[in-house]
Amino acid sequence: MTATTVTLKIDGLEVTVPEGTTILKAAKDNGIIIPTLCNLEGLSPYGGCRLCLVEISGSPKLFPACITPVSSGMEVTTQSERLTEYRKMAVQMLLAERTHICSVCVANDHCELQSLANQLGVDHVLFERNWTRLEIDSSHDFLVIDRNRCILCTRCLRVCDEIEGVHTLDLKLRGKDAQVIMDLDEHWGNSCSCTSCRKCAKVCPVGAIYIEGEPVSHTKHKDIAEFITERRQRKWKQ
């Protein structure tokens, strides 16, 4: 740990954390939970989902807590009417973007998007919903991807690249058309780089990547990235 620390206020609570810590981590270590979707401890930050936006006094802008480092004297607000409104908006946009029907989803009751919608009190979707019919790939022996449930958080890409170290997964196309692909857009069963390590399924926050025949509650293990990273650094948690 670095010797230098920084003192700041989060929701009025004075906290002291090592320099370079993100607002998200500083808050979490002090019992303040900020909603997140794309961020995962142990993986590089992505800053895509925008659920973790917070206010910093003195600036009209919003800041992603998962990336913004703390600085001395900062006053962070993690809960406000505007932030709740905006978080609900993000969840609604994600729900409307692709085919999310919780009742027929493998991840029902074990889905981070669903539980965020619950927590935030999203009781309707402001927009007309889009029912995508993207390709479902079940060519792998046991891994399945249903791209209609993907929220493009790229956790799977990052765990495959940064932890497993093979970079089987990447994105093709851009914007609303972006999709997770294997190798150079191969079927998963034909991928020559995939080691079948299952990490992508473990970290997927929704029911997009899952293991055939296995309850999602059993598959999901999103601490895997942090766990492996810490072991590699020879750090052992008490």
Partner: peptide
Amino acid sequence: CVDESCGRCTPCRAGLIRVKEV
């Protein structure tokens, strides 16, 4: 802008297209 969005963040990727539909 819908066509040019890179797809990284929710508001631009999943939001602009809904605005376009309105």
